[in-house]
Design a protein around this nucleic acid. Structure first.
Lengths: 196, 196
DNA sequence: CCCATATCGTAACGCCGTTACGATATGATG
DNA sequence: CATCATATCGTAACGGCGTTACGATATGGG
């Protein structure tokens, strides 16, 4: 028998964890398959056997991002005020995108011209939206919002995404105060407009 | 005296025009300095003398994008119904982003890990927002919207951007009908929420 | 002890961004 | 008219990337 295999699922997980860290620390430009391999103390062909190609590596980081966001959302409680809970959902979503800005780029933009999420990959993002839909439904059943929950969730998520992108690109304002004010204005206006 | 210069401002403009076309036709992955040079019937060092580096080339495409968007917006008339005009502004903005999706990526995402728009570059995007602010002001002075015009413009642009990104990524829905419905719901809800 | 073979990493290929540098063209000079 | 100085040009090089062919290697079975 030949030598024991080193390119195991364990190594896969280790490399993926290193990849997520490297992406956060070095940004999109520093994220190369060779670099990930070196940082993981393995060889480049090992990474290619484990992930197929660079797009495959990015895809798994993409999935990991949605998993992390979902974990964060799951910590949200239920205060009995569905609209206040929705506001806190927005704040959590915002803080995730701001704190993990490069990861969020991979999730919501396509900074690597390789990996273009196919429709099947988009299931990851819909798993997060399912969560939002559920919190929206609590508002509609309480009579605080009116309309289709999925449509409302799409609108809310799009607004959050647009605001977060603008904030990340320093397009939303120059002071923390003005940025906060615009977040609050936009989200409250959207919810107000949906409440009648 | 040495030979006549070929790397003139005229060549600069020609290369830029080729670059914009190449970006649209080949996407981010196919957009390389070498390729732009070849397509422009010139040499790679010529492109580098004219634009400094690849980031400089992308930066000029970025500016050109905002110029084109601004031209489109300038075609908007004044119907006497400021809110309806704002809706048409949204539709024009949307169609621009959808029709020029790769160009819009360069304007609003950072698909090239080189070029990171500095604060001075963001003046380009603010020139467009100034236009939006003006149309919002017509609503506020008519009593149709209430609040600071700049804040409202930021909220509206962020929503448009988020919806357009979602639509481009096929995240906003699977049918034209549902996508249109969500655009309409979101924009009208935001304006409704700002109208009191 | 030797061998078959699965597994490994070195090194190659073509492409990229970038630039050094030799080739070249052209007006000025003797 | 021949020579020269020099600004301008494009070829070709360098290192790094994604990707992979292939020779080296380790290890259980005969």
């Amino acid at each position: 028998m030949p030598r024991a295999k080193q390119r195991t699922p364990q190594l896969h997980d280790h490399v993926l964890s290193v990849a997520v860290d490297l992406l956060a620390s070095e940004g999109v430009a520093g994220f190369t398959a060779r670099r990930v391999a070196r940082e993981s103390h393995t060889s480049t062909p090992a990474v290619y056997e484990l992930f197929g190609d660079k797009a495959g590596l990015v895809r798994e980081v993409f999935f990991e991002g949605f998993r992390l966001l979902r974990y964060r959302l799951d910590t949200l409680g239920n205060s009995g005020d569905p609209r206040a809970d929705l506001i806190r959902l927005v704040e959590l979503y915002r803080s995730f995108v701001i704190e993990n800005s490069v990861l969020a780029q991979v999730m919501f933009s396509r900074p690597f011209s390789d990996f273009d999420p196919a429709l099947s990959d988009l299931a990851a993002s819909s798993s997060v939206r399912v969560f939002v839909v559920e919190r929206v439904r609590r508002c509609t059943t309480a009579g605080l919002l009116h309309g289709d929950e999925t449509d409302i969730a799409h609108a809310l998520v799009a607004l959050i995404q647009g605001l977060a992108d603008a904030e990340n690109a320093q397009r939303l304002g120059s002071t923390r105060k003005s940025i906060d004010r615009r977040w609050s204005l936009a989200v409250n206006a959207l919810l107000d407009g949906l409440s009648r």
